[in-house]
Design a protein around this nucleic acid. Structure first.
Length: 818
RNA sequence: GCCGAAGUGGUGGAAUUGGCAGACACGCUGGUCUCAAAAACCAGUUCCCGUUUUAACCGGGAGUGAGGGUUCGACUCCCUCCUUCGGCACCA
């Protein structure tokens, strides 16, 4: 029966067979090379979308390829199951978040299975299970013990729609990562993880990733961590109770050019001034009322003179102190020294406030941009007393040295990266294992009391307070130290905690004694290939790198980085824009699968674009893939028909020639396929080559002979990467044993790629004029003789003098005429 | 503004180290099969001009965002610029 007659039943049949035979189950085999292929696990939102399908199909091809290459491949899947949508659903449909989540998982698991992906389902993880989140709590306690978590009252990002706080990474560009609402600032007492302590290590670790991660991801992370080296410099404040203002600068070499100081409106100095200065108070009032987001977007820089002067420590000059809205309290010290000649923002501010602009850096060569604009580049110091004449680079070192010797300043590095705020005022997350004792204060829950279970009976309101607060029997507890009354922390953890170490848990997912057995993780980790969306560049991919480094410091992992190679797959678009529910441009995987089957869907997704690039959905393209699949199916049918028939009488010589040609072309293509896959996962071109092999077999005169049988079978094996169900079926039809997915990937034979005759393009002055067929490795003189007999070349040459022959052996000839 | 990625037929996309631009598909055109359609199969398909009764064939020219450069030879390397997408954005 042909594929198109009952492909849906066949796909289900083979899926069941793979599952029953547990052919993708893996275990530690120390004598075997391992390959850990990981895809970013999904949030169980209800159903899978094309983005998931793309992600997981790419992952499956990679896993299958290395498995067939003889590696012990670990390819797990699970569910990032905590999160806000479950609570929203709870409010909307009056269903418990757990029930909603687990229903979704069940649905999506079926959908994933319908794609025929080679997962090891035995190690499946669901992060909302106590058996998993227990270890989140355990890690939290380990961090607490090492001083890496702390509670702090601070201005934090608040999403009014999600009714919870957000980490800095989750409020990029001032909007909520989940709902795109503009975030507000709120002062709250919250738990933070000291990720900043690892800022340098996170930057440093990039050296392990440089050639194996997309450069844009590394740059995004680098920018996000935002390291800047410079100095803190103390400016004494004249005639004020506020003794000194500390500024941060990366340009200590411009210190002589500082003609004013600017401090942020939120700075304590500003607040102090406002007490006795009505105008300043009025200004602060106006500025602080505006949301930070709006303030950052404002083009105009405003400010007001504080009435005080600061003393420049390098030359004792008194310079005015301004309060200005372009100075951010959240970065550096919240105060800056301003050098209008060499900083464009200071320049603009100085212009509007009539402040002196003093040039202290001259360009090494070329001209300065002054007086039209600030000259911001490095150069030679001028007007800088005994430092004049030094380069900016030397000057920075010398000036900082001087300030340090006088205790007027010090070397300092600042990062843009902020500590990770992990408290969430929500129910559906990991309870933070902290109790507040009336006598003993803040304590972590004892390890043996873990997990702190999430209570079942909860009323979810979405009001911005943790629903756990109202479950008295849960909140009220006893102090394990003094036995007195204590209350539990009611905030839950950011769900990014769950995904920060799941890749390690997969290795030993059922362990109830420890997060994982290092004997197992030491074999599987690090992840060899990670596949997912680029949107996680500065969230999940920073958090989990941090977590891994923490586990490294605990001695739980041996490598410094968790993910050796990263592939960020492009978006799936329709009409040029990402598929989204709100835009209504969605193609449902289920619909496509029930119409064309999983294999066609997989094939199209892999063929339409290289994995890294955006993929535009095309129904016509899908049909093309459907046609190809059936064409392969018919090819096998045709083979089985002609196989046992006696070959027509043929001339032996002719047959040998055809056979050689087939093998040569096939081996060339196979070599290309291996290169396409191993080099850059170029599945689109690899598939194109399988199409060429198919075309080759269709046009092979002696189809049905042994050679074509070998090529055909290998084609089926290659295709099992992309269309596993079809391949399994054809493999069976060809009389081979289950399972094609456990066979070895074919290897090409360089010796069979033979070309005794080569077509050489002949160019004249770089323009193609003719082509000739000659023997391989023909001596140059013979080659020239043949070329000079070619009519087209003779015609082009006509009386013209040949200046030069450029002969690239076996490749090309270019004749240069005068 | 800064950083990153990318610009190739009607479309998606190919082109090891600089060496035949457009692989493989989609679409379109024509044909075979059929009462007809679908499917399948075969042929053609970068653009412009010319030769030609039309077509085939042949000949000439242009062509990888634009303009320069290096080179016997440039989609590929260098410089200047434009456009699109993505990230960061008063970070001192």
């Amino acid at each position: 029966m042909s594929w198109q007659e009952n492909f849906l039943e066949k796909e289900l049949f083979w899926q069941k067979k793979w599952e029953e035979n547990k052919i993708f189950k893996t275990e530690v085999k120390l004598d075997k090379k391992k390959f850990y292929c990981l895809v970013m696990f999904p949030y169980p939102s209800g159903k899978i979308h094309m983005g998931h399908v793309r992600n997981y199909v790419i992952g499956d091809v990679i896993a299958s390829y290395w498995r067939m290459k003889g590696y012990n491949v670990f390819h797990p899947i699970g569910w990032d199951a905590f999160g806000l949508p479950a609570e929203n659903a709870a409010i909307k449909h009056n269903v418990h978040p757990e029930k909603w989540t687990k229903n979704n998982i069940q649905n999506m698991r079926d959908q994933l299975k319908r794609l025929g992906i080679s997962y090891n389902w035995d190690v499946e993880i669901t992060t909302c299970e106590p058996s998993y989140y227990k270890w989140n709590q355990w890690f939290f306690i380990k961090m607490f013990e090492r001083g890496l978590v702390y509670k702090k009252k601070a201005l934090v990002n608040w999403c009014p729609k999600c009714q919870t706080v957000l980490a800095n990474e989750q409020a990029q560009q001032g909007v909520c990562w989940r709902c795109d609402n503009i975030v507000e600032q709120k002062e709250l007492d919250q738990w933070f993880i000291k990720i900043t302590e690892y800022a340098e290590k996170l930057l440093d670790g990039h050296k392990f990733l440089e050639n194996n991660w997309p450069p844009e991801v590394l740059t995004m992370q680098k920018n996000w961590i935002g390291k800047s080296e410079g100095a803190e410099i103390k400016f004494a404040v004249r005639d004020s109770d506020f003794n000194e203002i500390v500024v941060f600068t990366t340009r200590a070499d411009t210190l002589f050019g500082a003609t004013f100081i600017a401090v942020a409106p939120e700075h304590d100095f500003s607040k102090l001034v406002a007490k006795n200065n009505f105008k300043v108070a009025e200004y602060l009032n106006k500025i602080l009322k505006k949301p930070l987001n709006e303030r950052k977007l404002a083009k105009e820089k405003t400010g007001i003179f504080s009435g005080f002067y600061g003393i420049n420590p390098i030359n004792n000059e008194a310079i005015p102190i301004y309060i200005a809205d372009y100075v951010l309290m959240e970065y550096g010290t919240g105060a800056i020294m301003c050098v209008p000649a060499h900083d464009q923002r200071d320049f603009e501010f100085a212009k509007t406030h009539n402040i002196t602009i003093r040039e202290v850096i001259k360009p090494l060569s070329g001209t300065t941009t002054l007086p039209e604009a600030a000259y911001e580049l490095d150069g030679i110091m001028v007007n800088s007393d005994r430092f004049s004449g030094l380069s900016s680079y030397e000057g920075r070192i010398k000036i900082i040295e001087y300030l340090e010797s006088k205790n007027l300043g010090r070397k300092k590095i600042y990062y843009k990266l902020k500590d990770w705020l992990i408290s969430r005022q929500r129910y559906w997350g990991t309870p933070i294992p902290i109790i507040y004792c009336e006598k003993c204060g803040i304590l972590t829950v004892k390890e043996e009391d873990l997990p702190v279970m999430l209570p079942q009976n909860v009323h979810i309101t979405g009001t911005g307070e943790s629903p756990l607060k109202y479950i008295e029997e849960w909140v009220n507890t006893k102090c394990h130290k003094c036995g007195g009354n204590a209350k539990r922390e009611t905030d839950t953890m950011d769900t990014f905690v769950d995904s920060s170490w799941y890749y390690a848990r997969y290795c030993d997912s059922k362990n109830d004694k420890e997060p994982f057995d290092v004997n197992i993780t030491n074999y599987w980790l690090p992840v060899d290939q990670y596949i997912g969306g680029i949107e996680h560049a500065c969230m999940h991919l920073i958090y989990s790198r941090f977590w891994h480094k923490f586990m490294y410091d605990l001695g739980l992992v041996k490598t410094e980085e968790p993910f050796l190679k990263l592939l960020t797959q492009g978006m799936v678009t329709l009409g040029g824009v990402a598929m989204s529910k709100s835009r209504g441009n969605i193609v449902e995987p289920d619909e496509i699968i029930s119409k064309y089957g999983a294999d066609t869907t997989r094939l199209f997704i892999l063929f339409a674009a290289p994995p890294q690039k955006q993929l535009e959905w095309s129904d016509k393209g899908v049909e093309g893939c459907w046609r190809f699949i059936n064409r392969v199916d018919r090819l096998v049918e045709k083979f089985l028909e002609v196989k046992n028939k006696k070959q027509l009488d043929t001339e032996q010589q002719e047959y040998e020639k055809e056979k050689k040609y087939l093998l040569s072309e096939y081996n060339k293509l196979l070599k290309g396929i291996i290169l396409d896959i191993e080099k850059e996962y170029q599945f689109n071109t690899a598939i194109a080559k399988t199409m060429e092999i198919t075309n080759l077999l269709y046009s092979y005169k002696y189809f049905g002979d042994e050679v074509s049988e070998k090529v055909l079978k290998e084609l089926v094996v290659i295709l099992s990467l992309f269309t596993p169900h079809l391949s399994e079926e054809l493999w069976y039809k060809l009389g081979e044993k289950f399972s094609v997915r456990k066979t070895n990937f074919p290897e090409y034979n360089e010796d069979l790629i033979i070309e005794d005759k080569i077509e050489i393009p002949i160019e004249i002055n770089g323009k193609l004029k003719s082509k000739i067929l000659v023997d391989k490795d023909l001596p140059e003189e013979d080659l020239k003789r043949i070329i000079l007999k070619d009519t087209k070349i003779l015609q082009a040459l006509q009386n013209k003098k040949i200046l030069k022959w450029v002969i690239i052996k076996n490749k090309l000839v270019n004749i240069v005429l005068e």
